[in-house]
Amino acid sequence: MATEAETGGLVFHPMDQFIVRPLFGDGPVGLFTLTNATLWLALTVLAVAALMIVGTSRRAIIPSRSQSVGELAYGFVYKMVEDVTGKDGVRYFPYIMTLFLFIVFANFLALIPMSFSTTSHFAVTVVLAMAVFLTVTILGFVKNGAGFLGLFWVSSAPLALRPVLAIIEIISYFVRPVSHSIRLAGNIMAGHAVIKVFAGFAAIAVISPLSIVAITAMYGLEVLVAFIQAYVFTILTCVYLKDALHPHH
């Protein structure tokens, strides 16, 4: 993927944008080192705070623009949680809102040129996906006890098929965090890498107009992807949560 074809003047380093570097100095990346990843995580937090705290600070009955956007995000995620998980899932709304806002702001900040895409890293998405997976699994057993295993026992299927289906269900259950994390990081990484490749082609004067058009088109697509992937991650989290709260099909 990161192969660099150095032919003539063409130099492709599509994956270099994802390298984690210390912000200050050139030392190794330790556990607490401030890196470019740290910077963009912090900017994500600031963006969330700007929208959700500064934007809503006037508590107006007739909302300002930023307050409208904040309320829109609130209503969007709240309705999603309520629709998918039901009334008893609303308790977990703050956690899901945290996930959604983090991913959506990280994705959009990553679209700023020269920025760093935190959500393109498996280190980030795996932690998010594993957090969802573990929470949902533990919650399922706490809420339903052994009844949570009914999730894997498809009672509507013929009895002979049920053990086979149970194996498939168990496999698919454990594949969930893998697909959950790779989908997000893969989409973001691929889009950014493709933009970088087109940017590399711009070095050739003849191709550069085409290259710029292609970058613009890709950028538009990436804006969609940035939101859609956050939405997909969030709604899948809701679906998994619903399975934990109501394991019977």
Partner: peptide, 18 residues
């Protein structure tokens, strides 16, 4: 081999700050 995502030496840092 080319994917900074698979450079596990930065995972601890990223996970901590995440």
């Amino acid at each position: 081999p080319g994917m900074p995502q698979l450079d596990f030496s930065t995972w601890g840092n990223q996970i901590f700050w995440l």
